[in-house]
């Protein structure tokens, strides 16, 4: 079953259309990156999904139902929203124990969840003294309390140091790929999620601009192969004869389109030309992102 389904979702705040007819799905066992610049409507979408915001029209469903109708929401969906939602005078453990008793979960889940995010040794410390990164981990541990199979995370990498981001990536991949969870994670920094996500949904100004696998996005448009050869002048006509479009970049360097790397190698072998470089050019993900979201 589709874990998360957003259908024609729309929500306005005053005259501002925060989300304007967005639809996408997230399947179990995968990490989906929900990407867009600040103010694109990511948070509004996620909060609609969690019953915190009432959409004007359309539907946002988890496991085929609205979040507010779930009998045990914490055991089905783990959510990480902004990292500021803690009482500064309360300890990390107490914060989680409150959620446990409200959700009807055993109290020891609180300690276990803190251990899972590496906060066990500060369990008894007041949250007011926590760094932003520690708060993010605490928020994540609260999402783990009910051992859910669906995770919804809004900018979880905010405030994390590089080591923390690396840890988060591994953690999300583990949840999705090893435990079969469906993970929806939003970010405004593509590079942050590039190594984590399987699928991407890109939103800009409240509208969906792109949805697909990360691979599809990277190989967006026609990609070229950079070929450096000892005798490029000889190789170029042969490649063209095989149907490739060849651009002579500089002495000894060609950009080849229309055929794949294997064909290039075969032709070079036939011509007895020594290849010193064959590189599949990746389109710059950040560039694609900026183009799609209209930031440039």
């Amino acid at each position: 079953m589709t874990a998360i389904e957003i259908r024609d979702l729309a929500k306005s705040f005053g005259s501002v259309k925060a989300v304007d007819g967005v639809s996408f799905t997230v399947e179990a066992g995968s990490v989906t990156g929900y990407l867009g610049p600040n103010g694109a409507g990511k948070t509004t979408t996620l909060r609609s999904l969690l019953g915190l915001v009432t959409p004007d029209s359309g539907e946002a469903l988890v496991d085929g139902r609205r979040y507010v109708t779930l009998p045990q929401p914490v055991s089905e969906v783990g959510a990480v929203l902004e990292a500021t939602s803690f009482h500064p005078g309360r300890t990390a453990l107490d914060h989680l124990r409150i959620l446990c008793v409200a959700a009807g979960l055993p109290d020891q889940r609180a300690g276990e969840s803190l251990e899972m995010v590496g906060l066990a040794d500060v369990a008894g410390k007041r949250v007011g003294g926590f760094s932003l990164g520690m708060r993010q981990r605490l928020a994540l541990s609260s999402a783990l309390l009910g051992r859910p199979k669906i995770f919804i995370l809004d900018e979880p990498a905010n405030g994390l140091d590089p080591a923390g981001i690396e840890w988060l990536r591994g953690f999300l991949r583990h949840l999705a790929h090893d435990q079969g969870a469906a993970v929806l994670v939003s970010s405004h920094v593509l590079a942050e999620v590039e190594q984590t996500v399987d699928n991407v949904v890109i939103i800009a100004k409240g509208r969906l601009v792109r949805q697909g696998t990360l691979k599809e996005l990277i190989t967006n448009g026609d990609t070229a192969i950079r070929v450096r050869a000892s005798n490029a002048a000889d190789l170029a006509p042969a490649l063209e004869a095989a149907g490739a479009a060849v651009e002579r970049v500089e002495d000894g360097l060609l950009r080849v389109r229309g055929i794949d790397a294997e064909a290039v190698g075969q032709i070079a072998l036939d011509r007895r030309v020594v290849l010193t470089e064959v590189t599949q050019e990746r389109s710059d993900l950040q560039k694609v992102f900026l183009e799609l979201t209209g930031e440039r």
């Binding site: 969690l50 019953g51 915190l52 507010v68 929401p73 914490v74 500021t84 939602s85 959620l99 959700a103």
Partner: peptide, 18 residues
């Protein structure tokens, strides 16, 4: 009101959406 002030209301309503 402290739930709104410290935004713990988010977690409260996530746990108990009704």
């Amino acid at each position: 009101t402290s739930e709104y002030r410290y935004q713990t209301v988010t977690g409260t309503f996530l746990t108990t959406p009704r």
